[in-house]
Nucleic acid binder design. Structure first.
Length: 581
RNA sequence: GGUCCCGUGGUGUAGCGGUUAACAUGCCUGACUGUCACUCAGGAGAUCGCGAGUUCGAUUCUCGUCGGGACCGCCA
């Protein structure tokens, strides 16, 4: 029989209709003659009823959870309704029952609240994915990708695919390599992003490109990082930074409206990279709560505390965060825990002050009355507040206090998952000097254009030059980032020189791009959004595996398929590969 | 590359230098005609991840190993 309805569809108005349903047995309740079965598919659950006088009653005794059924019967109004499900007003009185398939006992319970650990869930992912709560994530993922396409198509963008087998570009993350059989000893790389190809498409004149693109990076995993992930990849010609931010912003708003029916502030606030670092210590600030970092270097320099003063003499800084009502929230032991937390970020310690009638704390003996007053004023310390202070190199102070700020906000639940604090971080520096490598690096990538007024700085003081570069941040997460690209060969050469990439290396790695720049390259720029992270935001999870159908574990393995796995000697030989170990 | 946490019936947990290895849920059997986390009664199900060491004796302590997770580094 053909299915007439899905299991989330039937309402009171269908009463007396004869319907055919198919699905899985979610739960059977046998009351001793009267049997109820909850039939589940991805649309919902419909209750089936069997009465003891029914000729089907004997057959129901065989039915167990996760059996696949086809039933036909009459829709009737329930005598006791269930308000918790959309079909709770009706049930189907079954007159025909076919067991389409049986099921072994499942290793995990197919319910929203499963008791299984992630390890079991990933091994039996196909069962895990039967759970309605997880199916909802992928329904939202689908809606979001459709919203992206609808918006960008409407705006005149073209969706164009770029290669998965491509060229290794060792700048940046480690590449996944694929051996070439036909060209023994040579390798393709899987793309870390379609960056170069989308720029080439601009040179080809496509003007507005997008792709929902798989990207690959062979780096260690985290709860928000998978070796393969998806980006909404966008590139446009003849638009300036403001125009790109505008179209991006409208796209995000359209997704949020279509998928979550949320209206966002218009326009998104913008702060500069420098402001973000000063105020939040981090380039992706969570702006749902305050607790800003306050620079107290000048006050600290006047104290007799040698930890502060010697650090400042060596060019270090001292910053503090004011934890409102923190004096009673954090005991000595609690502060010790916070100290351990900042030590992860190489801070050597965490000084603190509590204001309860009087000022007290680890460094109080180094503060005379005037200094106390200055600190209280500067940090707006009020009764029962806790001041946490880190003294170190600027990078360590910002990183440790910036993360501590997020950590405390999470502990104290200072924010709401439904607050979408979208924020543009703009005016990034062109270059970052890394002591340990003794050279400059690009915060984003080496194709980023320097801001017009700073062009001359490329020669004079590269580290002072700002880039046409922007990140979209929400809830303390980087959701996307992009830049205006360099479209002139000489500027690109100049940047490569500053980055210490030799002429030969430039030719070898990016020769084709440098060549292409010669042939009438239009001014262009673009942006890419982390699609998995967007879905995480929409479904309120911190675990990327909840929004990826078949994810890898922390050690980059698939527990379901056992990938990666060894291959036969024959296969290796064909690929001209010998393994060591 | 590093730090920390976890590994006990199908599943999730408790536990302890000597136990009949406990509880919940799932599973099986029986009872029950309006349940929806049905209820009630009974039952089966675990060489405590693997290896070595300490010990009279190890699931328990130590080391190693494998697997999972969180984080730092890394992720232009």
């Amino acid at each position: 029989m053909k299915r007439t309805h899905n299991n989330g569809q039937l309402k009171l108005e269908n009463t007396n209709e004869i319907v055919t349903l198919k699905g899985w047995v979610s739960k059977k309740r046998d009351l001793g003659g009267l049997v109820f079965i909850d039939l589940r598919d991805r649309f919902g659950i419909t209750q089936l009823a069997f009465h003891p006088e029914s000729p089907l009653y004997q057959k129901t005794l065989k039915i167990k959870n996760e059996y696949v059924l086809e039933v036909t019967g009459k829709v009737i109004e329930r005598s006791s309704k269930n308000k918790n499900i959309p079909t709770g007003d009706i049930e189907v009185e079954v007159t025909e029952l076919i067991i389409l398939n049986t099921s072994a006992q499942t290793p995990l319970i197919i319910q929203d609240k499963t008791d299984a650990l992630e390890e079991v869930r990933l091994k039996y992912r196909y069962l895990d994915l039967r759970r309605p709560i997880l199916q909802e994530n992928f329904i939202i993922r689908h809606k979001a990708s459709q919203a992206v396409r609808e918006f960008l198509n409407e705006e005149g963008f073209l969706e164009i695919e770029t290669p998965i087998l491509t060229k290794s570009t060792p700048e940046g993350a480690r590449d996944y390599l694929v051996p070439s059989r036909i060209n023994g000893g040579e390798f393709y790389a899987l793309p870390q992003s379609p960056q170069i190809f989308k720029q080439l498409l601009m040179i080809s004149g496509f003007e507005k490109y997008y792709q929902i693109a798989k990207c690959f990076r062979d780096e260690d995993l985290r709860s928000d990082r998978q070796p393969e992930f998806t980006q909404i990849d966008i590139e446009v010609s003849f638009m300036d930074q403001d125009e790109i931010l505008d179209v991006s912003e409208r796209m995000i708003k359209s997704i949020m409206k279509k998928v979550k029916n949320v209206d966002l502030v218009d326009p998104f606030p913008r702060i500069t990279y420098k402001q973000a670092m000063d105020k939040y210590g981090i380039d992706k600030p969570d702006t749902r709560f305050d607790m800003h970092l306050v620079d107290i270097t000048d006050i600290a320099a006047k104290t007799a505390f040698t930890v502060f003063t010697s650090n400042i003499e060596n060019g270090g800084i001292v910053k503090a965060i004011n934890v409102k009502n923190g004096a009673s929230l954090y005991s000595r032991k609690g502060i010790d825990k916070l100290t351990d937390y900042v030590k992860k970020f190489r801070a050597k310690g965490l000084a603190y002050l509590k204001l309860t009638n009087t000022l007290a704390g680890s460094i109080i003996k180094f503060l005379d009355e005037d200094l106390q007053k200055e600190i209280i004023e500067r940090t707006k310390l009020e009764e029962n507040d806790l001041l946490l202070i880190v003294s170190d190199k600027e990078s360590v102070v910002n990183q440790s206090l910036g993360n501590l700020r997020n950590h405390i906000a999470k502990e104290q639940k200072l924010y709401n998952d439904d607050d979408y604090d979208f924020l543009w971080v703009i005016d990034w520096p062109m270059f970052e000097y890394k002591e340990e490598h003794g050279r400059y690096f690009s915060p984003h990538h080496p194709f980023t254009m320097v801001q017009e007024q700073d062009l001359h700085l490329l020669k004079e003081a590269p580290d002072k030059a700002l880039a046409y570069c922007y990140d979209l941040v929400v809830q303390g997460q980087e959701l996307g980032g992009g830049s205006i690209r360099i479209h002139q060969e000489e500027v690109q050469n100049q940047v490569f020189d500053i980055l210490g990439i030799s002429k030969e290396e430039q030719q070898q790695k990016f020769g084709f791009l440098l060549d292409a720049l010669k042939y009438g390259t239009p001014p262009h720029g673009g942006i890419a959004f982390g699609f998995d992270r967007l879905i995480m935001l929409l479904v309120h999870t911190e675990n990327i595996r909840e929004v990826v159908a078949f994810p890898k574990t922390n050690s980059a393995q698939c527990l379901l398929t056992q990938a990666p796995s060894s291959v036969s000697e024959e296969q290796l030989k064909e690929l001209s590969i010998k393994t060591i170990k």
